[in-house]
Computed example of a mutant assay.
Amino acid sequence: MQTMPSKTQMPQKLILDAHWDKRQNLILGHAALGGGDDRIRLAIFGSQGVHSWPVYWEGIQRAFSDCTRLNVDEVANDCNECAQYWECLTVSLGAFLHEIGHSLGCPHQENGVMLRDYVSMNRKFLSEERNCVRTNKGRWGPVLTKDEPGWNRLDLVRFLYHPAFAVPGDFGDPEFRPPELRVNQGMRLPPGVDGGPNFVAVNENRLQIISDTGTYLIEIHVGEWSRLHYEYLPKKACNGLGAQRFIELDYDVLQKQLAPQWRGKTVKLEVLCAGFCQKSIDDLQKFLRERSSPIPGFGGHMVRKSEPLGGNNGNDIITHLPPNKRISMIRVTSAPPF
């Protein structure tokens, strides 16, 4: 079974022949993954928990309250978190939502659906929780907002700029949804638009981030998770600064803004642009140190290595030019990736 939105080319698939083999203690025909590229993104999940899902909207409350024990001779107790029907519904539906998050570009996060907070997703629908075998906790309530799971803030910022979540009012703000980003090309930019981001190391302390479509999120990772981020929300919709075409980061300021326990450690930078592009720097301090030394450029000018000026990885090409000839033009032709 699959659903395929016509505009975003982002299908979700359930593998309907997934089934439990008790003899092997294994769910067969199962997959759980999400992701993709700039042409198509996909979320896939096995159907082994679908038996616990409600079949209509009015059945949601009953399904999330069903304490019937699962028969492990027939179906799986996945991760030992699905001992009852309502637990099975919460975990299987929540895990599928987690994979949809990956297809929308979300990585694993420190908390929220993109970790495993979805195991309490039932609290989004009910004012009280029934007895839970997983937590060995009896029936309790009322469920407060602080008890509910949710999406990490970084996920929400991604969704805000994702074309799948666009609403008609967004298109009245050309800075938020510019015309060149409305073309349905599988989240590809039209010719002539550089999505970026491009990085230029000014010196060992300052980094310039340049993007034609504008940067809307910068994540500063130390260790596994983002410990600090800068978000540039739409001006009209969120009273923010809007996606920025030019940003200059100061490494010393960044270090001061990090919590004390994360300072002085390797910083990984993740930069997301409104043109569906994302790029990372694995070690920001090393990048600034190696890329900030000036080198001779055209016409005797000194330049610094960057994506536009020799900073990308690749193979050098040596070309022999005819002697005693005046060069009037150099044209480079490249085939598009497939």
Rank of each mutant, 00 (worst) to 15 (best):
P323E: 14
G34Q: 04
C79L: 06
K305L: 15
L70N: 04
L272D: 07
Q208E: 11
L97F: 03
I27R: 04
Y216T: 06
Y232K: 01
I44N: 00
G105S: 11
F159S: 07
V75A: 01
L241C: 03
K279N: 10
F159A: 08
S292H: 08
R123H: 12
E129Q: 10
V222E: 02
I60P: 10
S280C: 15
C67G: 14
N198L: 04
P168F: 09
L233E: 00
A164P: 00
R41Q: 15
I295D: 01
K256S: 08
E175W: 07
H108D: 05
W151R: 03
R69Q: 08
S306I: 08
L156P: 02
F96S: 00
I220L: 14
E231H: 07
R177C: 13
E180Q: 10
V271K: 04
N122F: 10
M10W: 00
N131V: 14
P54E: 11
H162K: 02
N205L: 08
V75M: 01
L189W: 10
Y118P: 02
K146H: 13
D212F: 03
L28G: 05
V113A: 06
M302D: 01
N203E: 13
F45Y: 09
R331N: 15
K137I: 03
L126T: 10
P5M: 14
D212S: 06
I330F: 08
H51M: 02
H221M: 06
F246T: 00
P142K: 09
A335N: 07
G195E: 00
V55M: 14
V119Y: 13
D252A: 10
G49N: 12
K235Q: 12
F287Q: 02
E180Y: 15
S293R: 14
V332I: 15
P168Y: 06
M121G: 14
F45I: 14
N77R: 06
S226Q: 03
S6H: 03
V157G: 13
R116W: 10
L321F: 12
F165V: 00
Q61L: 11
T135D: 15
G275R: 04
M4C: 01
S306G: 15
P323L: 12
G29D: 09
R331E: 15
L93I: 08
E99M: 07
N136P: 05
Q2W: 07
G214A: 03
R182E: 11
P178K: 01
V271H: 01
P107W: 00
L309M: 15
S280T: 14
F159H: 05
R289L: 13
L254N: 02
E129I: 10
R177L: 09
N152C: 02
T319K: 12
E99D: 07
F246H: 09
E307Y: 15
K236L: 12
K325S: 14
C79R: 09
A164I: 04
S306A: 11
G264A: 11
Q9N: 05
I327G: 05
P260V: 08
R263P: 05
G112L: 03
H30Q: 09
D78H: 01
S292Q: 07
G186Q: 06
